[in-house]
């Protein structure tokens, strides 16, 4: 079994560190990459294989949904989780259109597990 790689995209350094730490507790074998925004994430994708995506919604530059739209052009089937503090239903509906799972911040052990299951059932 090849080692899986999760790309964490969030403009908040704290969030990225926290997301990585929480996933690493249940998936210590995965590789974790980080990007502070959409452009950096797309640059990483040009040179590095990525299996799973954790993408924040509210970021400067490309929003999470705009980034997912771009990612889907090269990774149509890859499991993606959209993390958002915005609980308005429109965000969740748009997330579904791109076949990504919408999870609300703040993250808990349960929601991290939910994301991990979404990734593992690719």
């Amino acid at each position: 079994m090849t080692t899986k790689t999760l790309l964490i995209v969030d403009d908040s350094t704290t969030s990225r560190l926290l997301i990585k730490a929480m996933f690493a507790e249940i998936q210590p074998e995965w590789n974790y990459l980080q990007a502070a925004g959409g452009d950096e994430a797309l640059n990483i994708l040009q040179s590095t294989p990525v299996d799973y995506f954790s993408i924040d919604y509210n970021m400067p530059g490309l929003s999470g949904l705009e980034l997912i739209e771009e990612v889907r052009k090269t990774h149509p089937q890859s499991p993606i989780v959209l993390l958002t503090a915005n609980i308005q239903p429109q965000i969740e509906e748009k997330s579904k259109l791109f076949n990504s799972l919408c999870i609300h911040k703040p993250l808990t052990d349960d929601t991290i597990k939910q994301a991990e299951e979404h990734f593992s059932h690719e």
Partner: peptide, 10 residues
């Protein structure tokens, strides 16, 4: 960000 969005969103 999390708290204010939770409130505004609801």
């Amino acid at each position: 960000n999390i708290m204010l969005n939770a409130c505004i969103g609801s």
